[in-house]
C-alpha cells in the first residue's frame, strides 16, 4: 500500500520501499542474533524483535489483518511459550559434551548453499501475473480475490476453504490434549490419580536464574 509523505514536493518518495528495507534489515540482524548468541533467553528476545518486524512487513504488503494475527499468535503465544520453556529448562552449569568441531562450518556451508540456490532461482525468474486471478478454478465465488481485505479473507475462509478451517480446529484440539498429556507430571500415587494436571499454570521451580553463569 504505497502512501506518500508530505515532505514538500516529495510526493513520489518511495516510503514503503524504505520502510521495507528497514524492517528487513532489523529482521535479518535479529535473526542472526537468534542463531548466534549464547544465552537462549537473549535469543528469545531477538526472536520477538524478528516477529515484530515481520508483522511490520505484512502490514506494508497490504494485509494488516495478517500483521495483527502475527503479533497475537507468534509474539503473544508462541514466543511466550518458548520463553517459559527457556526459563524451565535453561541450565548453564552443566559441562557441555564435546561436539564436532566443524559443525558450525557445515551448517554455514549448507545455509549459504541453499541461500545461493534460492536467490539465483528467484532473481532469474520472470514472474508473469497476467490473467492469474481469472484463471484459477476456485474463482467462481462472488468475492473479488484480488482485494486483500478482512471481509474477503473471512468469506474465502468460509467458502471454499471451509473444510481446512474445520480441520484446523481439530488440529488445535488434538494439540491441546496432546500437550497436556505430554507435559503433565506423572504422579504414580493412587491417591491423587484423579487430580487434573495444571502443569501449564503452575510451572515447576524454574531451573535457572540469570545469575547462574
Amino acid at each position: 500500500m504505497p502512501f506518500s509523505m508530505d515532505i514538500y514536493a516529495w510526493d513520489s518518495f518511495p516510503i514503503d520501499t524504505l520502510l521495507f528495507w528497514c524492517f528487513a534489515a532489523v529482521m535479518l540482524i535479529s535473526g542472526l542474533c537468534v542463531v548466534t548468541v549464547k544465552r537462549v533467553f537473549h535469543a528469545g528476545i531477538a526472536m520477538i524483535v524478528c516477529f515484530v518486524c515481520a508483522a511490520g512487513i505484512y502490514a506494508l504488503l497490504g494485509c494488516p489483518f495478517m500483521a495483527a494475527l502475527q503479533l497475537l499468535v507468534y509474539v503473544g503465544a508462541i514466543a511466550t511459550m518458548l520463553l517459559f520453556a527457556v526459563m524451565l529448562t535453561d541450565k548453564m552449569m552443566e559441562p557441555r559434551p564435546n561436539t564436532t568441531f566443524f559443525q558450525p562450518f557445515m551448517g554455514l556451508f549448507a545455509s549459504v548453499l541453499l541461500f545461493g540456490l534460492l536467490w539465483l532461482t528467484v532473481s532469474s525468474s520472470k514472474f508473469g501475473f497476467a490473467g492469474w486471478a481469472n484463471s484459477t478454478a476456485a474463482s467462481s465465488s462472488a468475492i473479488d480475490i484480488t482485494s486483500l481485505s478482512t471481509t474477503n479473507i473471512g468469506l474465502r475462509l468460509l467458502t471454499p476453504y471451509a473444510v481446512p478451517f474445520e480441520l484446523i480446529s481439530v488440529i488445535i484440539l488434538a494439540t491441546l490434549i496432546a500437550a497436556i498429556a505430554l507435559a503433565r507430571k506423572e504422579d504414580r500415587s493412587p491417591a491423587d490419580s484423579g487430580t487434573p494436571a495444571d502443569a501449564p499454570a503452575s510451572p515447576a521451580e524454574p531451573a535457572s536464574t540469570p545469575a547462574k553463569e
Binding site: 535479518l28 557445515m106 554455514l108 549448507a110 545455509s111 541453499l114 528467484v122
Partner: peptide, 17 residues
Amino acid sequence: LSVAALLFCIGLYGVLT
C-alpha cells in the same frame, strides 16, 4: 522473496548448529 530466503537460511543455520 530474497529477504524471505535469507531468513529461511538463517533459521536453517540455527536448526543445524
